[in-house]
Amino acid sequence: MSVKTIVPVILSGGSGTRLWPMSRPEMPKQMLALTAAETMLQLTAGRAMGDVFAAPIVVANARHADLVEQQLAAAGARPQALILEPAGRNTAPAIALAAIAAGRGREALLVMPSDHVIADVAAFHAAIERALPMVSQGWLVTFGIAPDAPETGYGWIQIGEEMAEGVHRVARFVEKPPLDAAEAMLASGDHAWNGGIFLFRADRYLEALAQFAPGMLVATEEAMEKARHEGVRIYPDATAFAASPDDSIDYAVMEKAERVAVVPVAMGWNDVGSWDALHAISERDADGNMHRGDGGGTVLAIDTKNCFVRSDGVRVSLVGVEDLIVVASGNDVLILPRGRSQEVKKLIEAMKAKPAA
Rank of each mutant, 00 (worst) to 15 (best):
S188V: 00
M224D: 11
E85A: 08
R89L: 11
P93W: 09
S136T: 15
S2V: 14
P177G: 09
F308W: 07
R315I: 02
A350F: 09
A192H: 04
E175I: 00
E230D: 15
A227S: 14
L72I: 09
R338Q: 12
I249T: 15
S317Y: 06
T298P: 01
M112D: 01
E343F: 09
G166E: 01
S136I: 04
S282L: 06
Q42L: 02
M216I: 10
H291E: 05
Q80D: 07
G295I: 02
A81T: 04
H168P: 05
E343T: 03
V9M: 07
A98E: 06
R310L: 14
Q211F: 10
M49D: 07
M163K: 09
P236Y: 10
K29E: 01
G155M: 11
G88S: 11
E322L: 05
E343N: 09
G103F: 10
A55F: 00
D148E: 12
G330V: 06
P93E: 10
M351Y: 12
R78C: 04
G105W: 03
S317D: 10
V314E: 07
F124G: 03
E255Q: 15
L217K: 10
E175P: 01
K226T: 08
L209N: 03
P214R: 03
P264W: 03
K345W: 10
N194Q: 14
A87S: 13
P86M: 03
V232W: 09
R340C: 11
I249K: 00
V262E: 04
I197N: 05
E69T: 12
M27G: 02
F200M: 15
H279G: 09
T304V: 13
K4E: 14
S311Q: 05
Q158C: 10
D190P: 00
L97M: 08
S114I: 04
A94T: 13
L324H: 06
E230C: 08
S317G: 08
A261E: 05
F173N: 01
P8Y: 00
G155K: 10
A328E: 05
A213K: 05
I10H: 03
T91K: 02
P28I: 09
D66N: 12
A65I: 03
A123R: 11
F198M: 08
L97P: 02
F143R: 08
A240K: 05
L206P: 11
V121K: 14
D287F: 12
Y154I: 01
L11V: 04
A187Y: 00
G76K: 11
N90Y: 13
A280K: 06
A37E: 14
E322Y: 02
G330L: 06
G195I: 02
I159M: 06
R340E: 12
G14A: 13
A96S: 15
F212G: 02
D190I: 06
P133A: 09
